[in-house]
């Protein structure tokens, strides 16, 4: 024990008040604010790009942005006009892929969280989920091409592209649903079992109603992820251009090829010469804007439901 540190705290014989600043204390404070500043700068450097990118894109896109841009189809070899055909194609792909992935993902999460015991088999399932989440999107594209387009004979179609997207979003839906299910206290389940309910009755009556908000948030977040993916749809069903009527709501069949917003942006930037300057920017803004809106909505929903939670 060091005893010579004591005079620093008590009033010293030199008449300095107790708890006065010492050189050591000042150095500590300086060090602390320096640390704070460094980490703050690092954080800001990470946040700044988001703001800068969105601002720049919106400024460049401004001349082209209008309701007409959304509703019109690409014209004059895609150098003018709007993005309706791509927009509606993306909506199709996302809706079908989630209609497939959401039920399977939720049920799989229910199995993993409510039924599975800690056996080697279930550990392998966990490992599979983690690895499925890490598979690169271009590998999903190869899989979709080999499995759905050729082996299952769907051809290049909305169906093949949606199923490829579905398998890509599945592991994330499983993970987020599991988290939501795990947040329901075990005591709720035990209370339900104790009045004689079976396992499934407990899940339907207690677990799912109490976790539905978290499950929905996870699924909504996948809407934006599926909408933004390019590589998996590029080789399984999305095409450069497809003639569609302006504002038509049902332009594609399941075995048709379709346009997709993300791929449209890629094509406009890299493969179409002489596009009006603002059009690729406007396409990027629509894609980015809808993705960020969907995400903001999911985050808002999560906050709102968290505040309403009774436990």
């Amino acid at each position: 024990m060091r005893t010579d540190a004591q005079p620093r705290v008590a009033a010293g014989p030199d008449g300095r008040p107790p708890f006065a600043e010492t050189a050591y204390g000042r150095r500590k404070l300086r060090q602390e604010s320096a640390a704070r500043a460094v980490f703050l700068a690092m954080t800001l450097l990470m946040v700044a790009p988001l703001v800068a990118i969105v601002a720049h894109l919106v400024v460049e896109a401004w001349p082209a942005l209008s309701l007409e841009f959304l509703l019109d189809v690409p014209r004059n070899r895609m150098t003018e006009g709007g993005i309706w055909s791509a927009l509606v194609g993306t909506i199709y792909l996302v809706a079908i892929s989630l209609a497939v992935a959401a039920p399977i993902g939720v049920l799989a999460a229910v199995y993993l969280n409510e039924y599975a015991k800690d056996t080697w088999f279930n550990r392998i399932i966990n490992l599979a989920v983690i690895n499925l989440a890490g598979v690169p999107s271009i590998v999903h594209a190869l899989f979709g091409l080999g499995a759905f387009v050729y082996a299952a004979r769907f051809g290049f179609s909305v169906m093949a592209a949606s199923l490829t997207l579905a398998i890509m979003t599945l592991p994330v839906i499983i993970a987020s649903t599991r988290e939501a299910l795990a947040a329901v206290p075990t005591a709720f389940r035990e209370a339900c079992w104790n009045v004689g309910a079976s396992r499934w009755q407990t899940i339907r009556g207690v677990v799912l109603p109490n976790s539905i908000s978290g499950i929905l948030t996870g699924i909504i977040l996948q809407v934006s992820r599926a909408a933004g993916e390019t590589a998996p749809v590029m080789f399984t069903g999305a095409v450069l251009y497809k003639a569609v009527e302006r504002g038509s709501l049902f332009p594609y069949y399941l075995d048709d090829q379709c346009m997709a917003l993300s791929m449209h942006l890629y094509v406009l930037t890299t493969q179409v010469p002489n596009v009006a300057h603002a059009i690729p920017y406007a396409t990027a803004v629509v894609l980015l804007g809808s993705v960020l809106l969907v995400n903001a909505a999911a985050i808002g929903l999560r906050v709102w439901l968290r505040n309403r939670k009774r436990w």
Partner: peptide, 24 residues
């Protein structure tokens, strides 16, 4: 706030990043 911003940053589609890389 920062966590929300990070979540939004993670949501930007890769093709938009590619577009930013190519143009800006």
């Amino acid at each position: 706030t920062l966590k929300v911003v990070i979540e939004l940053l993670a949501a930007i589609p890769s093709v938009v990043w590619g577009f930013v890389a190519l143009t800006v």
